[in-house]
Design a binder for these strands. Sequence first.
DNA 1: GTGTTTGTGCAACAAAATTGCACCGGGTCT
DNA 2: AGACCCGGTGCAATTTTGTTGCACAAACAC
Lengths: 151, 151
Amino acid sequence: MDQFDKQILAILQKDNQTPQRDIGERVGLSAAAVQRRIKRMRADGVIQADIAVLNRESMGSPITLMVEVFLDSEKIEEIDAVKKLFLSASEVQQCYYVTGESDFMLVIVVASMTEYEKLTRKLFFGSKNVRRFRTIIVMGVEKLGLEVPIV
Amino acid sequence: MDQFDKQILAILQKDNQTPQRDIGERVGLSAAAVQRRIKRMRADGVIQADIAVLNRESMGSPITLMVEVFLDSEKIEEIDAVKKLFLSASEVQQCYYVTGESDFMLVIVVASMTEYEKLTRKLFFGSKNVRRFRTIIVMGVEKLGLEVPIV
DNA sequence: GTGTTTGTGCAACAAAATTGCACCGGGTCT
DNA sequence: AGACCCGGTGCAATTTTGTTGCACAAACAC
């Protein structure tokens, strides 16, 4: 993971459709070298996924919710159990294990409130270890990205 | 935006490196038709971005934070002003305008706590309209995605 | 120094994306 | 009904991009 790799990643996390030739020019490598590095980083899991980000309005404006989850027990097995439950739901797009008053923060995207209500039963009411949860309704998604600082 | 488009988007938001030929086979179109549809959807902004998601451990485990922001004034101009400020920071990867007790939820990724401390001054202390903010430190990113339900 | 490993550029090659073209409904107008 | 776009399609040709074989160079171990 040298400076070349980092430069390549910086480009890809902004636009992974950039032709390898262009990347090569920008970082000072041949297209072949760039291609080998990208291939290696994908195999190593440094690049976890390659995705298209969709415009939500075009997709019928699904509802985004953030849920702060408070657990009773903080025993590892219990935590792992709820975590597993959360991850099993495709509507849960982001799941963070956090410190402070609460234990988990979830970012959930659903097509309708009815759907969220159902999900709520499955994830929170159905789990004995969830003491309470606070739902924050998102009115506007002002920015949406997954970029990471590259040192 | 018909059923074909939706199927294509469903594939791309999971893996935008899928060859158009494969997509064509899966949805029942020729590769050329798929290519034209994708091109159109990119031009129309239905597809907002194409990005690589990086493994954070490989990137030196940057710190993820969630910040709940409480404003004083809820006048539109004031809200827009802080929003603009938030969006101006590249560390702010997600910005949600929310209902409830607070007004904004931010997802921030920084390389170090020092950096966050500095950002804090710029975004919150520097803005008169921010009454208070609550920082939630992320200990573990259990899932990370931006997928949207496709109806 | 010799050999090994790792990575490079170049050039050939394979695969993918893009485009020109003829064609096929589904509307609309006369 | 018939003539006519219009939007979209598939096929095939073309162009662009990604991939691989090969010779070579730097770094390292022995």
